[in-house]
Amino acid sequence: MGNTAYDFTTDDKGEISVKGLDAGAYTVEETHTLPGYNTVPKFTFTITATGLNQNEGENTLTVTTSKNGSGLVTNSSSGGGTVTLTVKNKKGSGLPLTGLNGVTFTWIAGSAVLCIGVAHLIRSRKQAEESEQE
């Protein structure tokens, strides 16, 4: 396919079928993410072929993924020159606590620190009064 970028759209099952890929490195980048799903980080997969000088059917295709694809991509070879990559797109959000959740957490943490400070102040004043009475 060369260095040309191609756009593919998944079917109703969320699948894309690409035929005729030669051995080499290919980069996958998700350009549109459905609402409620995390965007898959860009990753590279490499196709290597071994045993090409052997009888037909005895050659092997191997697919490896880059670090960004590990944990997201699994592959299986069904023989006959076909390799299936499965990309796991996860639901949810990878955003930090912001908005109401972030504000609530900040208020709780701030209140806890304030309570600890007030308790320490009361204790230290009590100890100072007791030492003055002696």
Results as ranks from 00 to 15, higher is better:
29 E>M: 11
29 E>H: 14
29 E>I: 07
29 E>C: 04
29 E>D: 15
31 T>P: 10
31 T>Y: 10
31 T>E: 14
31 T>N: 14
31 T>W: 08
31 T>A: 15
32 H>M: 14
32 H>D: 15
32 H>K: 15
32 H>R: 15
32 H>T: 15
33 T>S: 11
33 T>K: 10
34 L>Y: 13
34 L>T: 14
35 P>L: 11
35 P>M: 11
36 G>E: 11
36 G>H: 11
36 G>M: 11
37 Y>N: 12
37 Y>M: 12
37 Y>T: 10
38 N>Y: 12
39 T>Y: 07
39 T>M: 12
40 V>Q: 06
40 V>L: 12
41 P>E: 09
42 K>T: 09
43 F>A: 02
45 F>V: 01
45 F>S: 02
45 F>E: 02
45 F>P: 02
46 T>R: 09
49 A>D: 13
49 A>N: 15
50 T>L: 09
50 T>Y: 12
50 T>P: 03
50 T>W: 09
51 G>S: 06
51 G>Y: 04
51 G>N: 08
51 G>A: 05
52 L>E: 00
52 L>G: 05
52 L>M: 14
52 L>D: 10
53 N>F: 14
53 N>H: 15
55 N>P: 12
55 N>H: 12
55 N>V: 12
55 N>K: 13
56 E>R: 09
56 E>I: 08
57 G>I: 03
57 G>W: 02
58 E>M: 13
59 N>V: 06
60 T>Q: 10
60 T>C: 07
61 L>R: 01
61 L>P: 00
62 T>I: 07
63 V>S: 03
63 V>I: 12
63 V>T: 07
64 T>W: 04
64 T>A: 09
65 T>A: 07
65 T>K: 06
65 T>I: 10
65 T>W: 05
65 T>D: 00
66 S>N: 04
66 S>T: 04
66 S>R: 02
67 K>W: 03
68 N>R: 06
68 N>F: 09
68 N>W: 05
69 G>M: 01
69 G>Q: 01
70 S>W: 00
70 S>L: 00
70 S>R: 05
70 S>A: 08
71 G>N: 08
72 L>N: 03
72 L>Y: 09
72 L>E: 01
72 L>M: 13
73 V>C: 03
73 V>Y: 01
75 N>W: 01
76 S>E: 08
76 S>R: 02
77 S>I: 03
77 S>N: 11
77 S>R: 07
77 S>T: 05
78 S>W: 07
79 G>M: 03
79 G>R: 01
80 G>S: 11
80 G>Q: 11
80 G>A: 10
80 G>W: 04
81 G>M: 01
81 G>V: 01
81 G>A: 06
82 T>Q: 00
84 T>M: 04
